[in-house]
Amino acid sequence: MRRIVLGTLTTLAVMLSLLSPPAHAAADPHITSARISLAASTGWVKPGGQVTLSGLLEGYDQTTSAWIPLPGKEIEFYVSTDASARPATTTDANGRYRLVTTVRETMTFTAHWAADSSVGYGATSTEVGVTVPTRVKISFHEFQYSPYGKLTVAGYFEAYPENISTLQLEYSPNGRDRWKLVKKFRPADNYSFRTTANWASSGYWRIHTKANRDHLEGFSPVRKAWRWRTEISKISVSPGKVRKNRYVTVRGTLIRWFSTKRHGAYKGQKVAILFRFKGKKTWYLAGWAKTNSKGRFSKKVRAYGDGYFAAEFTGGSGTFASGSPNIRYVNTYKAGLLPFTRQAGPTAPIWTVS
């Protein structure tokens, strides 16, 4: 009888052990809510650069009143740009996650965990942004290089954001290297620019914008501004003394460079003969001369009074302007005019000499 009772008790003990958990086993936590953090390894990257997104997913355990990590949960990332698929990753044993992604344009990221059977509510992180500098497109619609070495450039640029504040005008003698900053200037508005510079050497030009947080370094196409040097010889004026309003002859020679090593006569070109009264600063156009096959010119012009003569070539389609290296003085004396004769004087427009 005793054996039967002991066997029955043993059977009951085994059944109870199967129905009840061991004394050392903890019950599953009861998670009532979740939270997720998000951080980016950098807030700025060049196009095509990589950014590491990382964070921690936690759930609130109401039994212990503490936040505990949630392992093995899928984290999905919402991005501000249109994407065919959302990147995703999974939390590790400590509830942490990490994702390396390639960024090609400025965008924002948000990490999200959707609720599952253990938690009634999911979690969404705060938004983090990554700035990717944009390309700047620069073009010319005007590019002129005057015979007096004045460069005029104007054009358009496209930039987003529209906050380009400074442009640089740069010069290179060969168009490949040795670029020299000639001028910094502000654009006319968010889309266009215009500026000038005085530069007496032929070469190549471009507009340059430096890189900043919002934009990549930008360059316009390289443009060639090329003119060949010209030179007027010392002029002669004869006679050196003449009656007022009588004629004198101004002579000289015009040459040009055809290459960096070769120069010769510049034929068929107009040369301005200039006159300035003694004691005055204004030059007047006295007449035009034309060079012959040897580059020589000769012109009879009126001597309106005591003063100086000079010659100037105003430049050709591919050549610089030049002036005579000297001026010649002519002394005049009165000519005993009749009472009804009006004294002559220069009537041509003022000629500005650069």
Rank of each mutant, 00 (worst) to 15 (best):
V5G: 01
L6Y: 10
L9W: 12
L12I: 14
L12P: 02
V14Y: 10
M15I: 11
L16D: 01
S17W: 10
L18D: 02
S20L: 15
P21R: 09
P22S: 13
A26D: 09
H30F: 04
T32Y: 05
S33P: 00
I36Y: 00
A40Y: 05
A40D: 05
S41W: 03
W44E: 10
G49T: 08
G49C: 03
Q50A: 14
T52W: 00
T63I: 07
S65M: 06
W67Y: 10
P71G: 12
G72D: 12
E74T: 14
I75S: 01
Y78Q: 08
A83Q: 13
S84R: 04
S84K: 06
A88P: 00
N94T: 09
R96Q: 13
Y97N: 00
Y97A: 00
R98P: 00
L99P: 00
V100D: 09
T101D: 12
T102F: 00
V103T: 03
M107Y: 05
M107N: 08
T108L: 04
T108D: 11
T110E: 13
T110C: 11
A115W: 02
D116A: 03
S117R: 14
G122R: 01
S125M: 10
T131M: 13
T134R: 13
R135A: 11
V136N: 01
L151W: 06
A154Q: 09
Y160A: 09
P161G: 02
S165V: 03
T166L: 12
T166H: 07
T166M: 14
E170D: 11
S172P: 00
N174M: 08
N174K: 07
D177E: 11
W179R: 06
K180L: 14
K183L: 07
A188L: 14
F193M: 03
R194H: 14
T195P: 02
T195Q: 05
I207D: 05
I207V: 15
H208M: 04
T209D: 01
A211H: 11
R213F: 10
G218K: 04
F219C: 04
S220G: 03
R223T: 03
R223K: 12
A225T: 10
T230Y: 06
I235R: 02
P239G: 14
G240Y: 02
V242I: 15
R243L: 02
K244D: 14
N245E: 13
R246T: 05
Y247V: 07
V250G: 04
V250Q: 03
V250M: 10
V250F: 06
L254T: 09
R256V: 04
R256W: 08
T260M: 06
G264Q: 01
K267E: 12
G268P: 07
I273S: 06
R276P: 08
K278Y: 14
K280R: 13
K280M: 08
W283V: 00
N292Q: 06
K299W: 02
K299Y: 05
V301P: 04
Y304D: 08
D306W: 09
F309K: 04
A310F: 02
T314R: 15
G316P: 11
T319N: 06
S324C: 04
N331S: 15
T332C: 05
K334C: 02
A335W: 07
L337G: 11
F340D: 13
T341H: 13
R342K: 15
R342S: 14
G345C: 07
P349L: 09
T352R: 14
